[in-house]
Design a protein around this nucleic acid. Sequence first.
DNA 1: CATCAAACATGATAGTCGTCATGTATGCAA
DNA 2: TTGCATACATGACGACTATCATGTTTGATG
Lengths: 205, 205
Amino acid sequence: MTTIMFDVNTREIKVEIVMRYPAAETAEKHERILDQAAKLFRERGFSGVSVSEIMKATGLTHGPFYNHFPSKEALMAESMQHTSQKAMGKFSMVENTANGKADFIGSYLSATHRDTPGDGCLIAALAPEISREPAVRGPLTCHLADFIDKMTSQFPWPEDKPARQQAIQAIAAMVGGLVMARAVSDEALSDEILHDVLAGLTEGS
Amino acid sequence: MTTIMFDVNTREIKVEIVMRYPAAETAEKHERILDQAAKLFRERGFSGVSVSEIMKATGLTHGPFYNHFPSKEALMAESMQHTSQKAMGKFSMVENTANGKADFIGSYLSATHRDTPGDGCLIAALAPEISREPAVRGPLTCHLADFIDKMTSQFPWPEDKPARQQAIQAIAAMVGGLVMARAVSDEALSDEILHDVLAGLTEGS
DNA sequence: CATCAAACATGATAGTCGTCATGTATGCAA
DNA sequence: TTGCATACATGACGACTATCATGTTTGATG
């Protein structure tokens, strides 16, 4: 088995196998694997997706997987980090206004986000499984830390309480609301959850 | 494969195999399986626990499992419902006061609850996996509906907004806070999440 | 053009897991 | 006490999966 180290300072995943001579095309395939993995993992969970399935979705057979990653665990960690960076990049384009905040939270707590987990929040889709996967907890921790920082600084918050605390409270409600709305089989209840949580988070604006 | 039907009205799980002649000892073993399964599922997820492991934890071998349940899927559904009923029973003993409410939310968002998922909230431990398991969504939906009802009626809420809406908002924040506190590998951040979410939910009292 | 490490495909291996088959033991019914 | 359905243990089967082995292709380098 391969041990995966995640350095919290440099935020690099250290593994044994290194990609030497990364030609452009190879790097692109590497990223396609990361993207497909992130999508499938969020749709079906880490254990619900096999390595060959990911490779097939990338247009390859299962063989060359180990030319790109030392193990499935390493892919889980790297795809986590890769997707986190992409998500944080998009975050910077949200405008720093009360409207921007309401728009962002509104789209997080939307039926669309609920119904397309493969393209959505990493935390809501995978958090419990991540709790049990040591290799992925590091990247998730950095992702959530970044998310909290962005939410704190990117949006206006009432000044009677610390902004960071309010951001954490908002994220908790968002994640919990989305997770519950997805788990429930009664569509009316699911919609009610999304609506009520959103109302609670945007009432001031 | 076996199809499992969950009747939302009667809240009964209908399966092919019926336990005839349920002697007292057999019924007790049946319940022991349900309890061990619920504990292990919450600790490691549905797919992280094998049937034989559950039977071993119950003190049996894997053989007689299919004398008790038609499939692993059916066990998942039945253990879900069984644990939900036990949890709701305990809920009735919480006192209907502001203190009772703060105590309940405080124990939900405690380090103890975070560190012992096997004995804790079904939703926080299993929700994303449940979203992908049709057989378990029914029981989970009833569980959450009951939880919302109890939270709405059992505790005092400010009267400027609908009690049910406030209860849903509180549950979302509780579930999200617990899920994130468990996923994060930085203990200080984990504690901060628990503390901040709790502060947001009990500030009025 | 020749070379060589890499990425590729096919195939194999070992382990796990859900489920079933078979035989034995046990406790209620007559 | 006898008979029979049920719960039990052991063991087997088939499917799936992560990982590795082997041979082939390919593309950059000299």
